[in-house]
């Protein structure tokens, strides 16, 4: 059986697809919580930390929004460390000492990451320098094609001719 969608129902389909996509995106950022600390302040800290820890299996997700087994284990560890009275930094260090800086979604600023942090700024400065130089040169040095040169006799003649033709056409219409 075939169904013929009219113009209107096709448009409705598009809207539904769009809404579905938005709904899906919203769903995708759901958090996985298998247990919850009794103290809401501590639970909040757990989630803040977990949000900044990279899941090593599904690399660009944080352990808070990944359902991989390792992410679950790491979440449990974060809860455990917080319950044991660790500060946020101590929990992060615990994970960094095992998995390296790479587990932090926000890379720390240090010698090894200097290039990472500074290169965008350098590129921006260099690009800005080129743009400024380009614009300066363009406005400062008039070239041969510059408008400031008076027309030659031949050019003037052609120009007058063109203007006259234009007037003629306008008069006709």
């Amino acid at each position: 059986m075939t169904i013929n969608f009219g113009q209107a129902s096709r448009r409705l389909m598009y809207v539904l697809c769009l809404l579905g996509t938005i709904g899906f995106v919203g769903f995708a950022s759901a958090v996985f919580v298998e247990e919850r600390l009794d103290d809401p302040v501590k639970e909040e800290r757990v989630r803040d930390i977990a949000e900044g820890i990279r899941c090593l299996v599904c690399q660009n997700q944080s352990i808070l929004d990944s359902n991989a087994g390792l992410a679950r284990d790491l979440r449990a560890i974060v809860r455990e460390r917080i319950l044991a009275g660790d500060t946020d930094d101590q929990v992060q260090n615990y994970l960094v000492s095992r998995y390296g800086d790479w587990v932090l979604l926000n890379p720390p600023f240090k010698m090894r990451t200097l290039v990472l942090w500074l290169s965008p700024m350098l590129v921006l400065l260099f690009g800005g320098f080129l743009v400024v130089r380009f614009l300066r040169r363009k406005s400062a040095a008039p070239t041969e094609n510059s408008v400031s040169r008076p027309l030659t006799d031949a050019e003037k003649k052609t120009f007058d001719q063109l203007m006259a033709e234009d007037d003629g056409e306008r008069g006709r219409s």
Binding site: L56, D73, R98, G100
Partner: peptide, 13 residues
């Protein structure tokens, strides 16, 4: 059994 030693070793797969 719980994967804790693995995590201490930085095992992720």
């Amino acid at each position: 059994l719980k994967g804790r030693v693995g995590i201490d070793f930085g095992v992720y797969g």
